[in-house]
């Protein structure tokens, strides 16, 4: 059962049950919606980006603990960060979800790129069919950031 212990860490269950920044933004913001049609998981993201920095964000979603906890942790990780640092973080997250076990994906040199709680999602790698759950919030984030770039 070691695999399950690694998958369902306490911090993941906490984010699942108490998602951070749940809600919507009013006023100016970009909005993106992601879903996994095969399982029905949904993630709605509002972002307020000013001068290249994500100054506010809100999420709504429904789905499994992994998809929702990943989204909640992402909210904690991105607010107050520059878009550049967030892109970097997203890259590190992608690497974490794909690299072989044993390698440390975390780069402490850049403050914006520390995965923090997100490292708890490393256990998902042992459950390949669940990686798309962890990715949902991040693909939604990419859509939202694309809108701010245009």
């Amino acid at each position: 059962m070691a695999g399950l212990d690694e998958l369902y860490r306490e911090v993941i269950l906490d984010h699942y049950r108490n998602p951070r920044r749940k809600g919507t933004l009013s006023g100016d913001h970009v909005h993106a919606e992601g879903n996994n049609p095969s399982c029905g998981d949904e993630f709605f993201l509002d972002l307020l980006v000013e001068d290249g920095v994500v100054v506010d964000a809100a999420m709504l979603g429904q789905g499994c603990s992994i998809s929702q906890a990943s989204g909640s942790m992402m909210m904690d990780a991105i607010v107050g960060q520059s878009v550049d640092d967030i892109q970097d973080l997203a890259g590190k997250f992608r690497i974490m979800m794909t690299i072989d076990e044993g390698e440390n994906p975390v780069d402490e040199e850049r403050p914006g790129s520390v995965l923090g709680d997100l490292e708890a999602l490393q256990g998902v790698r042992k459950f390949p069919v669940r990686i798309k759950c962890a990715d949902l919030a991040w693909t939604t984030l990419a859509q939202a950031l694309d809108q701010t770039a245009s």
């Binding site: 369902y8 399982c39 029905g40 499994c64 459950f127």
Partner: peptide
């Protein structure tokens, strides 16, 4: 969530469907 149930059951060799 049903997906989490399915993952946990799968660790015990039990195949169920989860989703819509």
């Amino acid at each position: 969530h049903p997906h989490d149930i399915a993952t946990i059951l799968d660790q015990d060799g039990i195949a169920v469907r989860a989703g819509h």
